[in-house]
Design a binder for these strands. Structure first.
Length: 113
DNA sequence: CGTGTGACCTAAG
DNA sequence: ACTTAGGCCACAC
């Protein structure tokens, strides 16, 4: 059975899981961000579907929240707070705890333009 | 293969 | 700040 493209949907889900594993404690990622990192910038819903189908028992999917900072499930709020995630009302302080997989850290280097 | 649904996102009002 | 509407991708029927 041929699949369009070089990646099977299952492979893509696997990529999603790997990315979720990469989210460190105290940080959160959005569905859209995971989709972007997985190669599907507009596939936030597909990410949700992938997590729904996930068989990984220890997958820290509670660190994946909505773009507005609202956790996917109410129960995740306490779990996230235990990891040190800052909350502003019912929502995660995205400006503070959003996961940044890229670490350019070029602040020590001045642009020599 | 078309339709409906969902752990979604963005833009308007 | 809250609600609607449209778009998006994958899955179930």
């Amino acid at each position: 059975m041929r699949i369009v493209g070089s990646e099977t949907p299952d492979a893509w889900r696997r990529t999603v899981y790997e990315l979720v594993w990469r989210i460190p404690p105290g940080r959160v990622a959005t569905y859209g961000l995971i989709g972007e990192l997985a190669g599907r910038p507009r596939a936030a819903r597909a990410v949700g579907n992938a997590l729904r189908h996930c068989d990984e028992k220890d997958l820290p999917f509670h660190r994946v929240v909505h773009a507005d900072g609202l956790p996917a499930f109410p129960g995740h709020r306490t779990r996230l707070r235990r990891e040190g995630v800052r909350f502003v009302g019912p929502r995660v302080d995205m400006a503070r705890n959003l996961w940044t997989p890229r670490l350019p850290q070029r602040q020590t280097r001045r642009p020599s333009l």
